[in-house]
Amino acid sequence: MLFRLENLSHQYSDGTLALDNISLSFAKGERIALLGPNGSGKTTLLLHLNGILKPTSGKVYFEDKPLEYSPKALLELRRRVGFVFQDPNDQLFAPTVKQDVAFGPLNLGQPADQVKKAVDEALRLVGMSEYAEKPPHFLSFGQKKRVALAGVLAMQPEAIILDEPTSNLDPRGTSEILHLLLRLNKELGLTLILATHDVDMVPLFANKLYILNKGKLVSEGAPAELFSDAELIRSINLRSPRITHLFEVLKKEDNLPINPRLPLTISEARKEILRLLESGRREKKKRTTA
């Protein structure tokens, strides 16, 4: 297991209990989504994985060893587990894109030519090479977001934590980030852990889903499993993906013989529609021959 949380609770100094007795584990190489409404504790949970927040009670295990909070251990952890923040303006502090991406590798004490190589490679991966010398305020929001990801990739981590990677992005930017993440997972075997409330994006991305509400872990499993429980999803101020909702209505209101495992994505919906059409045609044939 890459990460294991054991009875993790976190209380902020103003008294809010942001995380309430959470136990879960994340395996290597997975694409994990934490889904929850605003204020459900997603970001707080993520900040524990990187050692930025310490649990009030409970423990965080990284590769089955409890997390250490000494500067040296933290540096090592942060090299292996990168964190991409929600607002790229929080993360991009350096006056040029290149300098910002170089910040992490330089902190690891790598020699300059190796850093340069890592920077070029990271910028190439996110498709921002031509902006290397530009200051961040010349970039669009989506471009800033990709540079923030490059800043983390340059440290060559094994896992990346992303807080709301698609929030405030236009449809094109969202799909670009999504494909980039899937490619990183497939080609480099990176473990990806992201927090989101974008329910339409989750089935396209995640193979493991955790649902949080008010600091508690409500449910965990494969996205298909969890989204089939529409009542649960609605009870915590989220909704099913649009396409799933459509099939739910067709099934309930129009009594179409739809598979109980409702489609979550466009491609699953397409298969289901083709299946329905095919069975309808067969039915018709049977009736005419009879």
Binding site: L75, R78, D90, F93, A102, F103, G104, V115, G151
Partner: peptide, 24 residues
């Protein structure tokens, strides 16, 4: 507020009180 958040984000990339830059 921004200072606080930037500091957190910098810490996540191994900030130790020194801003190192590439000199080219």
């Amino acid at each position: 507020d921004q200072g606080e958040r930037t500091f957190t984000a910098m810490s996540a990339r191994g900030y130790d009180g020194n801003i190192r830059v590439l000199e080219d």
